[in-house]
Design a protein around this nucleic acid. Structure first.
Length: 299
DNA sequence: AACCAGGTTATGC
DNA sequence: GCATAACATGGT
């Protein structure tokens, strides 16, 4: 009852993906165990807790005991497929990776890791705004406070599963309310404004997906508080654009330095040259660099 | 106890 | 057009 099946693509490792989701942080939007991940998703105003496990050749989506109609099932599968980036053939990326003298180890050590997406573009946007210029541990705390206060939740097997707050719920906030939750005044303004823009339909995922990559960037950067870093983060994590590079990202720069690929943080030439080699797969490279930050960096 | 953190905007030359 | 400052506060 309530089970859906998705076949595994090539170059896919469920455990690598879970490992990335669980890194060292406390994400309030999903629960990872050794062999499963669960999160609540909102489908047509119905909150469904999705639990994913794997068997030999398939991934098993358990939606609990709800009797879901076919369109809802289809949306649940669609959500999961984007979350784990399942519909992409990443073998071209692996060919480039394996040919790189310094980075080829990633093809073995991180084998089967996908870009872990954030299908809800509003969630991706607000999350990236929260994460600007603060350490990730604190960023996850801020996100948790926001989600637990303004998101909906359901109880499933004794755990509370939250959905990300709706745009209009955040649009209705005053900046003072967010300030009390340790958001800076600027970020509070950005978040309320973004809630208003999305909540009133001036911007939506459907709209953004009709645009070319440069047009997407332009549309996103037009929002207050969204610069190139944030726009590219949303591009790579929510809009299926594998060319997005969050320029200037401190994690990326640290990883590049760890691998001896840049001499210092202003070494633009080396960065451009490297990403040129990975043309079309830039965001995969970024994601693998982020993954590399979570292991000892003794190369 | 300084310095840094998944940056962006406002200001000043 | 490019550097610099201000933002706010937790983590290391």
């Amino acid at each position: 009852v309530g089970k859906l099946y998705v076949s595994k693509p090539d170059n896919f490792s469920f455990s690598e993906c879970l490992w990335f989701l669980n890194r060292n942080y406390d994400d309030c939007l999903y629960l990872v165990s050794r062999d499963s991940v669960s999160r609540a998703i909102n489908i047509n105003d119905k909150v469904v807790v999705l639990t994913v496990t794997e068997s030999q050749n398939t991934l098993i989506l358990d939606t609990g005991h709800n009797e879901l109609d076919d369109p809802t099932k289809h949306l649940a599968v669609g959500y999961f497929c984007q979350w784990f980036d399942l519909e992409r053939d990443i073998s071209p990326f692996y060919r480039i990776l394996e040919a790189h003298p310094v980075l080829r180890y990633m093809a073995d050590d991180f084998n089967g890791l996908r870009v872990m997406n954030i299908p809800d573009v509003f969630e991706a946007l607000i999350w990236s705004i929260i994460g600007q210029q603060i350490n990730l541990t604190f960023a996850y705390k801020l996100k948790r406070a926001l989600v637990e206060k303004y998101g909906a939740h359901v109880i499933h097997n004794g755990n509370a599963f939250y959905t990300f707050p709706e745009p209009l719920a955040l649009a209705a906030l005053t900046t003072e309310e967010l300030r009390e939750m340790q958001f800076s005044k600027r970020k509070a303004e950005y978040i309320v404004n973004a809630g208003s823009v999305f909540g009133n339909g001036f911007l939506s995922k459907e709209m953004l997906l009709t645009l070319s990559a440069p047009e997407k960037i332009t549309a996103l950067v037009a929002l207050k508080g969204v610069g190139l870093w944030t726009a590219n983060y949303v591009m790579m994590k929510s809009l299926n654009e594998t060319t997005g590079v969050p320029h200037g990202d401190v994690g990326l720069l640290k990883a590049l330095a760890n691998h001896g690929l840049i001499s210092d943080r202003k070494d633009e030439k080396s960065i451009v040259a490297l990403f040129d080699m990975f043309a079309g797969w830039e965001s995969y490279l970024v994601h693998y660099f982020w993954r590399s930050l979570a292991i000892p960096s003794d190369f």
